[in-house]
Write a protein that binds this DNA or RNA. Structure first.
Lengths: 148, 148
DNA sequence: TTATTACATTGTAATCTTTATAATTAGTGT
DNA sequence: ACACTAATTATAAAGATTACAATGTAATAA
């Protein structure tokens, strides 16, 4: 049984447990998010599925991404650019973002608990979580630059 | 001589060096950004200055924030919400963000050089910088919650 | 000083992402 | 299969940001 299949099944179970109906559209959006190695925008998802669902509304994509976010299946990533990207939640990881081509690559690093503690101490906040990304140039774009 | 005055003078010098004209609008936007302890949106700035510049266009605010970003005077902060916030660049610092009221508080922490190095190693990226924020509840909002 | 040129500002329209709304359709439990 | 409720669709609306053309203003050179 593939990892993708596992993830999908677990996601569907989560939906059932939380009383969220499993519709063909939701199934397809989840499936696409899980198999997608990129971190797609709502519009990416909409375009990717319009072959299978010619009548699907873009509102459906947004609605369901919100639902998935609310039950914890999906994280919304907001970078500087115009639209949010969506990431199926598996294990904790951080992102490296290429400033030339926009590619997003996952990398693992132990959680920055110490930072959260210090921040909590100096600001008085009750800290719930954090976000962190590194920015730079991916190997492909580095090569392209060297050629020119 | 106050810190604010220093910052403003340095910022104006930077503009001169990079050949960016110093207009009354630019002067006012910089002044407002420096003295502002909040991290204002473009619209905040527009509203704050419409008393002094009744004819200023919102496009001017956006144009100049872009210019300031390009010469490194200002950082654009993009969180999940609708509009970007702008932060005058002084010393390196991170942000703690209140999920209840939206307040943003600065805190200092040694740069996460180790994270950048590991990310660079596992992804092959040439890492130029990173961003990190912690999210939680500020002291005021924590009190408000306890009361209820 | 004056003319010239390049850059800034203004006002407005356009674009783009996301959300709201109302009507229709489709899942789910009995 | 029925009834109930939620989801989908289509469309409009909202909000942030950008594009563009016309006007204004600062720097430069004659």
């Amino acid at each position: 049984m593939s990892h993708e299949h596992n993830h999908l099944q677990e996601a569907l179970d989560t939906l059932k447990e939380t009383g969220v109906r499993i519709t063909p559209q939701r199934h397809a959006i989840l499936e696409f998010l899980i198999q997608s190695m990129t971190h797609p925008t709502a519009d990416d998802i909409y375009k990717a599925l319009e072959g299978k669902f010619p009548n699907m509304s873009v509102a459906t994509v947004y609605n369901n991404l919100r639902v998935f976010r609310e039950v914890g299946l999906v994280k919304e990533l907001t970078y500087g650019d115009a639209s949010s990207r969506f990431d199926f939640v598996t294990t904790e990881h951080y992102h490296a973002i290429c400033e030339d081509c926009g590619k997003i690559v996952d990398f693992h690093y132990p959680g920055l608990d110490e930072v959260e503690q210090l921040a909590s101490h100096v600001t008085g906040f009750k800290v719930s979580h954090h976000r962190m990304e590194v920015y730079g140039t991916c190997p492909e774009c580095t090569i392209n630059k060297e050629v020119h």
